[in-house]
Design a protein around this nucleic acid. Sequence first.
DNA 1: ACACATAACTCGGAATCCGATATATCGGAC
DNA 2: GTCCGATATATCGGATTCCGAGTTATGTGT
Lengths: 117, 117
Amino acid sequence: MEPDLNQYLPLSPAVLHILLALSGEDRHGYAIMQEIARQSAGRYKLGPGTLYDNLEKLLEKGLVRELPRRPGEEDPRRRYYRLTDTAKKLLATEIERLDSLVREARGRLRPHPRRAT
Amino acid sequence: MEPDLNQYLPLSPAVLHILLALSGEDRHGYAIMQEIARQSAGRYKLGPGTLYDNLEKLLEKGLVRELPRRPGEEDPRRRYYRLTDTAKKLLATEIERLDSLVREARGRLRPHPRRAT
DNA sequence: ACACATAACTCGGAATCCGATATATCGGAC
DNA sequence: GTCCGATATATCGGATTCCGAGTTATGTGT
């Protein structure tokens, strides 16, 4: 029933950032690009090519769905996207994996534990 | 003088895992593959194609260097690799970036803090 | 009216991925 | 001592992904 989440892991940087950008709220494409730039303090920028390539694949996989036009939306060009429940689980799984990676790396990069001064 | 580390970020999953596998100790290619499989509990496996593609690029960039043959080494086929100081800094930078990503994601994925029951 | 930001999208060369395959050695079982 | 699976490095090439440049068009502020 549940698709195997592990088949999607590890997430490429592009997919990770797209899912993350959508995790807080629904966004349209342009806003996703801005959010990613914001989160990385401008160091990582997703071009439209990468964004729409990946967005299309995420739609196919059922990880993201497009929302119908918003009633009160002022700019009719915007197309909003939302994570599916599967994507939320996937993101949560990946975040945990990354966290354990971070902890493992910390242990190795800090090979000289100093005791309390 | 210092090469701009940001130009290498974000690291692809393959590069991240290779650097991580080498962060604790020098390893030869086959051992890198095993270490990566071990760390992910067998869920993520790097094939030889991906490994050697990336290893070659890392050597070119001066992030990894090959060690001379070990005196006491039993298996003469093994070629050992070591991270350069630049790579250690790069890995540390990426780990911090991932950590802040993890923290941001946690805040978003846990938007309904339930009080103690 | 003008300029710039917003917004979605296309295109195609470049880069990367990555399993299949090749070649050879090691180590243990028998 | 021979057999065999694991170890070890490496190449090849099709498939996939990346990703900026460019396109078209609308919103917004002056």
